[in-house]
Design a protein around this nucleic acid. Structure first.
Lengths: 116, 116
DNA sequence: AAACAATACCTTGCATTACAAGATATACAG
DNA sequence: CTGTATATCTTGTAATGCAAGGTATTGTTT
């Protein structure tokens, strides 16, 4: 078990959430995620993910000049991307509720939790 | 994106949590997880996971007669398993906090959240 | 100009793991 | 003896985070 395994299928939702807030470029996203408390994520993780999401038409990109270095590729959400973000939020919430229920040993049908 | 991707690295922690509570056998775990709200997980998921955890000495197993059907393999946690469960709880908490921070667009260094 | 560092993007190959599909075995009911 | 429910395991596939390595651009230093 490691933290990276727990990121699977969650990281893309996080990227969508950040991109929805404002236009971001890939290199910046790694820094952003660190600010949110994650261990630094390598570019080998983020770039393939962005390319995949663009292929799936969840995001679009436009190249803009950088102050220093090659052009940046800024991403923004499409309508489809917003819908996907919505679905992710649902799934994430669902997951949180269920896992926390397991950890507390409360079944989904517990209607009257016992009090001490 | 799918729910199954989000389960990676989380399911084993859930199994450890259930097993810690009481001795359980594999076939039962699938039913248990459904009770906790998860979509039914196939045995093709659970058995390999249990075997791996036993190999890693996180759980031990004893065979006991069943009322109907072949012998059941009951699992219990080892000391190492309890430690691993502890580590999982930390990682899970860490993940929850960070993801929810991203979704709210609050950085880890936001000390004074704005009020409206 | 040449060399270097920082910025920025991308590709290849590997390890992990949930899962479908299928195989095997036991016990009991009809 | 046949069928059904119980119970476990194996094989192969798909998804994806990541390390490692590669390329290109700009500004700074020598």
């Amino acid at each position: 078990m490691s933290t990276t395994q727990m990121m699977k299928g969650i990281l893309d939702g996080c990227l969508l959430a950040i991109i929805k807030d404002r236009e971001v470029y890939g290199y910046e996203l790694a820094e952003q995620l660190e600010m949110y408390g994650f261990d630094s994520l390598s570019e080998g993780t983020i770039y393939p993910l962005l390319l995949r999401m663009q292929k799936e038409e969840l995001v679009t990109s436009t190249r803009k000049k950088s102050t220093a270095g090659p052009k940046r590729k800024y991403y923004s959400l499409t309508k489809k991307g917003e819908q996907e973000l919505g679905k992710f939020l649902e799934r994430w919430n669902y997951l949180q509720v269920n896992v926390n229920r397991v950890l507390k040993h409360e079944t989904a049908t517990d209607q009257f939790p016992e009090r001490e």
